[in-house]
Design a binder for these strands. Structure first.
Length: 484
RNA sequence: GGCCCCAUCGUCUAAUGGUUAGGACAUCAGGUUUUCAUCCUGAAAAUCGGAGUUCGAUUCUCCGUGGGGUCACCA
C-alpha cells in the first residue's frame, strides 16, 4: 500500500474490442509492456468488453493478432489463462455483481430512474447556464427499498455511485500531483444493472482482483482517475499507481483522427512497415533515452525504458520519420529474413526462385522504405519494362554514338566466360573503357537498357543479378531500338 | 462553457539556475566511379508572451496566450 512495501509489478493491457487495433492502443500497450519487462513484472491482457453492443469477437481477434505481430507477449490473458481469470470482463459478471450488492448494502450507490431524455434536457439546461453539466441527484434520495421494488417489478434503473464532495489528489508518475474537486463531478453511473457494469467500475474491480500495481494509460483517462480512486476507497481497495501517457496527435498537432491519417495498425502492417520499426518509432513518441540515439531495438528499449522520462505534452505523429525508421530496419535486416517478411507482398511465382530473390533484395535494399515498395523495385528483374529509346540517350549524345557504345559493351561482355561472370569482373572490363569513352556515355545507356527504368541500381549490380544471357539479350534489345 | 493536463528548431526530442541550447527526421548546399537510393560533410532552424524570485532563468512562481483531454446507461 505504501512505497516502502514494494508490490510486484503487474500491469494490464486493457483493449476494448470495439474496433480494429488502434495506433494509440498499440502505443499504450507498448509502454505497459516495456515498463513491465524492465521491472521484471507480469503483463495481463484483459479484454474490456462491457459494451456488449459494440464489442465484437472479430475485433478481439484482430487486436490480439496485432499485439502479437508487434512482438508483445503476456503472462495472463483470455488466450493463455492465469490464476486471476477469466480475462474477459463479460465473463466476470458475478464478480461485479458481488461488489455491486455490497455497495447497495452500504448505501453507497442507488438506483436512478431518470430517462435519457430527461438527463439530456438537464445537461443542456446546465450547459446553457455556463455550468459544468453534472447529474443533479434527482434519484439520490429515493427510498432504497421502494426503488428496489420498482426494479424488481421490471422498471429499468441505472446504478449510480454517490460521489462524495471532496478534493481528490493523486500522484501521477509522469505528471506529479494532480487534484480534482469531486464536487464538480456529480453522481456517476457505474452499471446499467447488476449484470451490466460500466468501464469506470469494472476496471477498478478488475485491477484490484487481478492485483494490478500500475495503471499506465492515455491522458484521456486522467479525469477518470479521481472517480476511480473514489470507487477504490469506497470498495476499500488498495490504491494503484498511475501514469498517464501523452496522447498521439495528428501531424498538425490537432486531434488524431482518421481524417488525417490511418489510425488502425493494420493499415501500417499492410503498407509494409516492419513491427520492429513501428515499435521503435512508437516508443520515441513521447519518450527518449538518456543518450542521443534513435535506432533502438526492443531489447535496448527494455533496458533503458523509464516512465519518468516520458514526455508530458502530446506528440505529433510523423509518418516521414516512421518511414525513415522502417528503411533503417530494412537496410540492417538480413536478406533471408527480409525475404520471409516479403512473402505476402510479392507474386507467388516469384517465390519459386528464392536465390534470385535474395540477390535482388541485396541489390535493392537501400532503395526500400517499405516491404510493399519492393515489388515495384524488383519487377524489372523479372521482366524488362517497355521503354522509349529516348531513355537510352545520355545528355546530348546522339543515337548513333549510343548504338556504337552499346555494341561495343555487348562485345566486351560477351567475351567474359560464364564462370567468371559477375560484378567484379564486369567492373574490371568496363571501367577502363569509360576512361576512354566517358562514364555517362557508356554506363547510362547500359544501365537504362538493362533496367528499362529512369532510376535503378547500377549496371554492374543489374548484370550480376540478371546473368550473362539475359544481360546480353537486354543490351541487344536496347541496340535494336536504334536499328529499327 | 466548467474542470484537468501540457508548452525547446517545421516535427520527435536532449540539457542546465550560468552551455556557442545538443541529437534525429525533414529542408537546403556539397561530396562519394553514370541514374535513383544508400553513405559522408556542411548550412539554416527553437526555449509561446508578460511580470516576479535571483547576481543570473529556457529551467522556479504567477498571469496571459495557445494546444490537448474530459464533462455518456462508450471505453
Amino acid at each position: 500500500m505504501t512505497d516502502s512495501v514494494k508490490k510486484p509489478v503487474r500491469v494490464r493491457m486493457a483493449p476494448s474490442p470495439t474496433g480494429p487495433l488502434h495506433l494509440g492502443t498499440a502505443r499504450t500497450t507498448l509502454f505497459n509492456w516495456l515498463f513491465a519487462k524492465s521491472h521484471n513484472g507480469k503483463i495481463i491482457l484483459r479484454i474490456e468488453d462491457t459494451d456488449f453492443e459494440r464489442s465484437k469477437k472479430e475485433y478481439e481477434e484482430d487486436i490480439i493478432n496485432g499485439l502479437k505481430w508487434l512482438g508483445f507477449d503476456w503472462d495472463e490473458g483470455p488466450d493463455v489463462g492465469g490464476q486471476y481469470g477469466p480475462y474477459r470482463q463479460n465473463e466476470r459478471l458475478d464478480i461485479y455483481e458481488k461488489y455491486l450488492n455490497k455497495f447497495f448494502d452500504e448505501e453507497k450507490v442507488y438506483y436512478c430512474f431518470c430517462s435519457k431524455e430527461q438527463l439530456e434536457e438537464d445537461r443542456q439546461a446546465m450547459l446553457s447556464q455556463g455550468m459544468a453539466p453534472k447529474y443533479g441527484g434527482r434519484c439520490r434520495n429515493l427510498d432504497p427499498k421502494e426503488a428496489k421494488k420498482r426494479v424488481e417489478n421490471g422498471e429499468h434503473a441505472a446504478i449510480r455511485f454517490k460521489v462524495p464532495p471532496i478534493e481528490v489528489e493523486f500522484t501521477d508518475i509522469i505528471r506529479g500531483k494532480v487534484s480534482v474537486n469531486a464536487e464538480l463531478i456529480g453522481d456517476i453511473v457505474i452499471a446499467r444493472n447488476l449484470r451490466s457494469p460500466l468501464f469506470m467500475f469494472a476496471g477498478v474491480v478488475d485491477d484490484f482482483e487481478m492485483k494490478i500495481s500500475h495503471v499506465i494509460r492515455g491522458e484521456d483517462h486522467i479525469t477518470n482517475t479521481p472517480k476511480q480512486i473514489l470507487l477504490q476507497r469506497a470498495l476499500e481497495f488498495d490504491e494503484v499507481k498511475y501514469a498517464h501517457l501523452p496522447l498521439i496527435l495528428a501531424p498538425d498537432r490537432s486531434k488524431l483522427s482518421k481524417r488525417h491519417l490511418e489510425t488502425s495498425l493494420n493499415d501500417y502492417r499492410n503498407e509494409g512497415f516492419l513491427p520492429e520499426a513501428l515499435v521503435n518509432f512508437l516508443a520515441f513518441l513521447g519518450w527518449h533515452p538518456t543518450e542521443d540515439k534513435e535506432i533502438m531495438p526492443v531489447e535496448e528499449l527494455i533496458k533503458e525504458f523509464d516512465l519518468r522520462r516520458v514526455q508530458k505534452g502530446g506528440a505529433a505523429f510523423n509518418i516521414v520519420k516512421l518511414e525513415w525508421f522502417n528503411s533503417q530496419y530494412i537496410q540492417k535486416m538480413d536478406s533471408k529474413e527480409l525475404l520471409s517478411r516479403l512473402e505476402s507482398f510479392i507474386p507467388k511465382t516469384w517465390l519459386e526462385n528464392p536465390d534470385l530473390l535474395i540477390k535482388i533484395i541485396d541489390v535493392e535494399k537501400s532503395r526500400m522504405n517499405s516491404l510493399a515498395g519492393f515489388k515495384n523495385l524488383a519487377e524489372p528483374f523479372f521482366e524488362l519494362p517497355f521503354y522509349d529509346k529516348k531513355l537510352l540517350l545520355w545528355k546530348d549524345i546522339s543515337e548513333k554514338d549510343t548504338l556504337r557504345n552499346l555494341k561495343m559493351l555487348s562485345e566486351e561482355i560477351l567475351k567474359i566466360p560464364e564462370s567468371d561472370f559477375g560484378k567484379k569482373r564486369l567492373e574490371q572490363i568496363i571501367m577502363p573503357l569509360t576512361e576512354v569513352w566517358g562514364r555517362g556515355e557508356l554506363l547510362w545507356p547500359l544501365r537504362a537498357g538493362l533496367s528499362g527504368r529512369e532510376a535503378s541500381a547500377g549496371p554492374f549490380e543489374l548484370m550480376d543479378v540478371l546473368g550473362k544471357d539475359e544481360s546480353l539479350k537486354r543490351i541487344k534489345s536496347a541496340a535494336d531500338k536504334f536499328n529499327a
